[in-house]
Design a binder for these strands. Structure first.
Lengths: 156, 156
DNA sequence: CGATACGGGACCGAACTGGTGCGGATTATA
DNA sequence: TATAATCCGCACCAGTTCGGTCCCGTATCG
């Protein structure tokens, strides 16, 4: 499985919907209609996304939501982090305590590397790319750092 | 969080324990003692790992378990797949049905790419590397295909 | 002042997860 | 052949998490 929560999936959908209309200020109901996600769920998601700093909201009669920054600067990793907390494949990789093994666990540091790899994979894709009708991931570039594109080279 | 199940974490631990003694035939109790995981849990894990073809078992008085192949040819992705089923970040990426959106979901194909990236990240690390006391991932190479190592270049 | 829309909770049912236990099958050894 | 050790396949249970809904307070515009 190793899957992200369904809510996160919906979250990216809402975000891409938002990315398609950067100028407008869309309310929750409108976003629900466009993204085909249940309205209460969308509302819940948007609250989290606002708290995560990815979306800004304006209240009042003609209020709504819009992206906090350009769609090219928001990555899938950002969305996942906002909705599920920091990305950490293993439990012990995150908070130091709790792991009963601790000392004898030689593989902990290796897990961290895998963690990092997954994080980079998610960071390599921006909202703008997700919003594109076809997968057009060729020039992934993030915050100035070059990113391993080879990851995406292989196709099934 | 995007985390693997705790059982999977334990599973890799048991596997690495097994990898440290490729010749021997260790029983469940012994493995539990060495890996510091509860015995019933180890037993459960081993059943799954056998079913997944990663471990072979011999029954009878001096029975036990050993790796089905060399530790260099078993990847973390293999272990995860055996314990949690096929790796698929998103629900809809897996089985075609169930997704109510389907047609309007432009990002589905993009998710598949991310899926592939994560899968490759997990495939790039072998049991032998996990068993090594220090993270020594430099020459990841898998089934002859070259693998994006750059993923592991960045350190925190 | 009233209508619209966001904000922050509480809440609930369903599903999954981790963990335990038991009877049966298989093999080595005495 | 009998016995003990060991794996095998289930069924079972408590706890937690997840998806989803609802309600009431607050801010803004007309």
């Amino acid at each position: 499985m190793l899957k992200i929560a369904k809510l996160t999936d919906y979250g990216t959908l809402v975000m891409t919907t938002l990315a398609l209309e950067p100028a407008a200020c869309l309310n929750a109901q409108e976003l629900a209609a466009r993204s085909h996600v249940a309205a209460p769920t969308v509302a819940k998601l948007l609250k989290l996304l606002v708290k995560g700093g990815l979306v800004v909201s304006t209240r009042g009669t003609h209020g709504g939501y819009r992206l906090a920054r350009g769609a090219e600067t928001i990555t899938v990793a950002d969305v996942v982090s906002a909705l599920e907390g920091p990305i950490a494949i293993t439990a012990c990789a995150q908070h130091g305590g709790g792991c009963t093994i601790e000392g004898s666990c030689t593989s902990r540091s290796n897990w961290r590397l895998i963690d990092e790899a997954v994080r980079q994979a998610l960071s390599a894709v921006t909202l703008a790319q997700m919003a594109a009708p076809r997968a057009q991931i060729q020039t992934a570039r993030m915050h100035g750092k070059s990113v391993p594109l080879h990851v995406f080279a292989a196709r099934e």
